[in-house]
């Protein structure tokens, strides 16, 4: 989508607006036709009202805050463990031999499969949610850091060595910037997985707070309007992270170091 030229972008935006308006119109007509109960298929104004009242009394912000907190804590732990371990795996053969088979065996297990086990181990609530996020985020971070370090051009290493770089300078000036695009890609992938994992974990390990819990709880009371409003919030936060946080992160690190030439056309 980003490759489109600006001359076409105006028209595409116009058509996107028309498309979404058509879709909203069709939904509204279906919702008002009375073919389905209003509790199951609320009208768009009802969804908007649910969204507004959630925002106005601060409850939605509180839920979003606790979900975000869990995601950030779990991801922070995953990055703190995954990046150093991945770099070590890329540099030291013994470490790679030990951890790569373990990672390959654990990776195909979906993080949500651990939820019941983690509930027993860590109890309902934050511990389980953070643990699941950590598990979901660890492998993309770990494997990308590992392949990033391995992808660093050996010529650069030798050239820097010849120019007199010691181990720490080599690491900070060559290996880390060289592996950075991979690591950032890994963190990005990790966020997508973590975002799925946290919502699922919140639904299963009911904890009173969190966007996943709101959606799940709303099912009990047949509040489809609350569900749809929470879905909107979840989608927006995910999008904001992808665009704002990771876009900025990429700009201030990778592009500045000149590792990626012009990311967007």
């Amino acid at each position: 989508m980003s490759t489109r030229s600006t001359s076409r972008r105006g028209r595409s935006l116009g058509r996107a607006a028309i498309s979404l308006a058509l879709l909203a119109g069709a939904y509204e007509a279906l919702a008002r036709s009375g073919a389905f109960p209003a509790a199951l298929l609320p009208t768009l104004p009802a969804v908007g009202l649910a969204l507004w009242s959630g925002l106005a009394d601060g409850s939605l912000a509180g839920h979003a805050a606790s979900t975000l907190w869990r995601v950030l804590l779990g991801m922070g732990l995953a990055v703190a463990v995954g990046v150093p371990l991945g770099i070590l795996m890329g540099r030291v053969r013994t470490v790679e031999d030990f951890f790569l088979p373990l990672a390959s065996a654990l990776m195909p297990i979906p993080s949500l499969a651990w939820v019941p086990v983690f509930i027993l181990w860590f109890g309902l609530g934050n511990g389980t949610a953070v643990g699941i996020v950590f598990y979901a985020a660890l492998f993309p971070v770990l494997l990308n850091a590992w392949s990033g370090v391995r992808a660093v051009n050996p010529l650069w290493l030798r050239a820097a060595g010849v120019m007199g770089a010691d181990a720490s300078a080599l690491f900070r000036k060559v290996i880390l910037p060289g592996a950075a695009p991979f690591i950032i890609t890994g963190v990005r992938q990790a966020f997508l997985r973590a975002w799925i994992a946290v919502v699922g974990a919140e639904m299963l390990a009911a904890s009173d707070w969190g966007l996943g819990w709101v959606i799940f709880d709303a099912k009990e009371f047949l509040r489809a309007d609350v569900m749809l409003a929470s879905l909107v919030v979840i989608g927006l936060i995910g999008l904001a992270f992808e665009r704002l946080v990771f876009g900025t992160l990429e700009r201030v690190t990778v592009q500045r170091w000149g590792m990626v030439r012009e990311a967007r056309g």
């Binding site: 989508m1 996107a16 199951l40 699922g200 639904m203 799940f216 099912k219 047949l222 489809a224 989608g235």
Partner: peptide, 26 residues
Amino acid sequence: EDLLLPPVSMAAPIPGIAYAPLFLLW
């Protein structure tokens, strides 16, 4: 493309499992 891309791009970033309770309700 013009009709389908906007709704598809809007629904895609929401993690799939978040839809689960809604689908169970429906």
